[in-house]
Design a protein around this nucleic acid. Structure first.
Lengths: 220, 220
DNA sequence: ACTTTATTTTAGATATATCTAAATATATTT
DNA sequence: AAATATATTTAGATATATCTAAAATAAAGT
């Protein structure tokens, strides 16, 4: 059962919005994510329901099925492999690749993806640090480390905080070190363990060892 | 003015059938080439005519315009660059690449094609020996050599004959050495200059120096 | 519980790309 | 020049993917 490009894109959006199938997703949320109208989403949900990649109850939103999850992960796998190709081989910057990868992910050829994977030497993470599912849809979770444990020149992405008090989150927000931010350790002061951090390739900030110890990072 | 994948494919077919814009092309011929019905072709020709990439007079077939030629050549350029990528980098066999390249050629990104061209080291010919147009649509003609002048292990494609008498063409047809056939010189006999030739990677045949001298080949 | 608000679906369009069947135009034959 | 054959177009469907406007349903507030 083949899916059109539009169907693949909707399924991917539902997968992401549902946090990998954990939550159910509303029509309105899908419409916002896809930058289209709820009416169009209703049409598409009916179709995806018919294909049994989602479970669709009218007026009550959708849940992705196991089959749907598998298919979404295959599309994500293709997207991220192409991103690695564009950055590693064609010298794209990591923020230039998304639009092109959105197109490339819909190319249909199992052989192509196998060969590309081999050619790229079986990468486990894309240029944004996101994990690449294997051909069975399994994802390798990247171990999280506290920011203060990272070495100079190492890069990563902020994924969580240990201390989630409002005051701490306000501070993080203020300095731009939000969840999802790309960071690089520019310097570490031996005396007090404080760090100099580059956030999103533009903003530099200093933080104490205690603050850094509360920020969890996946390395890339 | 953007074109859909279907429009690009029709335009490419018309470009090939018209021999690069030299002849006009009939609706039926396009239908046969596209493996579709003449009625569908009529619809599409009207649309391509509106976009001024072809000149369309009802009941009298089409001629491709200069703008249409330029666009067809860009699609061909992309197709052939992707073929080089698939063969050189991903280890595809030259007869496995067409279907995938048909999809890849429609990816829209000028930067992607520039970078791919650079990455592949500006190839001038694809794995089938066909020339790759440059970004302005200019094509480097590959010099043609007589088959008897080729060395052992050299490969190429039969593109023309010097003696085009019916008898000679009948002979070529009989042995499978038609225009467009891929050939490889397996052996040359020094005594009489006769050759052993592999045709289309399957059929071996022997031919005299005189016959070979009348066959023109582009090398690949 | 009833009313209001927000969300979601349906109905009816539009645009692309295709088809079959019927009509029409061109080309060929006698 | 009329009849026949071939090629081509038009008319009317179908399927996908989208939209707007109206109707229906669910959720929230009083």
């Amino acid at each position: 059962m083949n899916m059109t490009t539009a169907e693949e894109n909707y399924l991917k959006a539902i997968y992401h919005l549902s946090d990998g199938g954990k939550k159910s997703v509303s029509t309105n949320d899908v419409a916002a994510e896809m930058k289209t109208k709820p009416a169009s989403v209703s049409d598409m949900l009916r179709k995806l329901g018919d294909k049994e990649v989602i479970e669709y109850r009218k007026y009550y939103g959708v849940n992705i099925t196991e089959e749907g999850k598998k298919r979404a992960l295959q599309t994500i796998r293709k997207h991220r492999l192409w991103e690695v190709f564009l950055v590693d081989k064609l010298q794209f910057a990591w923020d230039e690749v998304h639009e092109v990868a959105e197109q490339l992910e819909h190319i249909q050829s199992t052989l192509l993806i196998q060969r590309l994977d081999t050619y790229l030497n079986y990468p486990k993470f894309d240029p944004h640090g996101d994990p690449i599912p294997d051909e069975f849809g399994d994802v390798k979770a990247r171990p999280r480390v506290a920011l203060n444990e990272m070495e100079i020149d190492q890069t990563g992405q902020i994924v969580a905080v240990k201390d989630s008090s409002a005051a701490f989150l306000r501070y993080l927000d203020k300095v731009g070190a939000y969840i999802g931010a790309r960071i690089k350790v520019l310097d570490k002061v031996e005396f007090d363990g404080s760090l100099e951090i580059l956030v999103d390739q533009k903003k530099t900030l200093f933080m104490s060892k205690d603050v850094a110890a509360n920020i969890l990072v996946i390395q890339s």
